[in-house]
Amino acid sequence: MPQITVDYSAQLKHGFDHDWPAFARDLHTTVVEIAAATLPGCKTRFRPTDDVFVGHEQEEDHALVHVHIALLPGRTEETKARLTEAVLELVRRHVRTDGGRTLHVSAEVRELDPSYRKFVE
């Protein structure tokens, strides 16, 4: 915990300032500071998405980034909203598009289901 997933348009593979580790490091630091998570508990996976559609326009004109953060229950709505805003700002600082694409960025913080379990070996 937290479980973090960054879905992004495949054409942005090199758009994260060519430095995925720096983005993950800043993201983890932000989650720890705002949501009182532990740094060793932060786990992030990046998933490129080839098929992106925005309205009726061609995907070449748009790029998407969506950050999902799943936390154990107990954070206030204000904390979750603050974290969401901070994540949007991180993406703004780290992601660059090329070719005049419109960048669509969103983020969501939710609570893990009570059935969530994990183990580490």
Rank of each mutant, 00 (worst) to 15 (best):
41 G>E: 10
73 P>D: 01
10 A>S: 09
8 Y>E: 00
43 K>Y: 09
29 T>L: 00
80 K>W: 03
20 W>V: 09
22 A>E: 11
96 R>S: 12
55 G>R: 00
119 F>S: 14
35 A>H: 05
53 F>N: 07
83 L>M: 09
26 D>G: 09
4 I>V: 14
26 D>P: 12
70 A>E: 06
82 R>I: 06
77 E>F: 11
63 A>N: 09
12 L>G: 03
55 G>C: 00
40 P>R: 05
55 G>W: 03
4 I>G: 02
7 D>P: 11
110 R>I: 09
60 E>D: 13
102 T>D: 05
46 F>T: 02
37 A>G: 07
22 A>V: 02
77 E>A: 15
77 E>I: 13
121 E>I: 15
118 K>S: 12
76 T>D: 03
98 D>F: 15
39 L>R: 15
11 Q>T: 13
27 L>A: 01
97 T>F: 00
29 T>Y: 01
102 T>L: 01
36 A>V: 07
52 V>H: 02
115 S>T: 12
40 P>F: 01
86 A>V: 02
74 G>Y: 09
115 S>A: 06
81 A>F: 08
46 F>E: 00
60 E>Y: 14
41 G>A: 14
7 D>F: 15
29 T>P: 00
101 R>Y: 02
113 D>H: 14
83 L>F: 03
70 A>D: 08
94 H>N: 06
7 D>V: 11
74 G>A: 05
31 V>I: 15
28 H>T: 05
59 E>G: 15
107 A>H: 11
121 E>K: 15
102 T>N: 06
12 L>F: 04
83 L>P: 05
98 D>A: 13
69 I>M: 06
44 T>C: 10
13 K>T: 14
5 T>P: 07
62 H>S: 08
89 E>D: 13
120 V>R: 14
77 E>P: 10
36 A>C: 03
106 S>T: 15
57 E>G: 15
80 K>N: 03
93 R>L: 01
73 P>N: 10
49 T>K: 06
8 Y>W: 05
84 T>D: 05
98 D>H: 14
87 V>I: 15
113 D>P: 11
120 V>E: 13
72 L>P: 08
38 T>C: 02
46 F>W: 06
15 G>W: 09
97 T>Q: 03
84 T>R: 13
88 L>Q: 10
53 F>C: 05
112 L>S: 08
101 R>W: 04
15 G>A: 01
65 V>Y: 04
44 T>D: 02
17 D>W: 12
35 A>I: 06
36 A>F: 06
97 T>D: 01
112 L>P: 08
98 D>M: 06
99 G>Q: 13
33 E>Y: 05
30 T>S: 08
107 A>I: 09
68 H>I: 01
41 G>R: 08
101 R>G: 03
12 L>Q: 02
104 H>I: 10
97 T>I: 04
118 K>G: 05
55 G>E: 00
14 H>R: 11
61 D>W: 12
28 H>Q: 00
43 K>H: 10
59 E>R: 15
67 V>G: 07
30 T>K: 08
42 C>L: 04
45 R>I: 05
36 A>E: 04
43 K>R: 14
49 T>A: 09
81 A>Q: 12
117 R>N: 15
10 A>E: 10
55 G>M: 00
10 A>F: 01
50 D>M: 10
36 A>W: 06
117 R>E: 10
117 R>W: 10
4 I>H: 09
96 R>W: 03
33 E>M: 04
67 V>R: 12
12 L>S: 02
54 V>H: 13
52 V>G: 01
13 K>R: 13
13 K>M: 00
42 C>R: 08
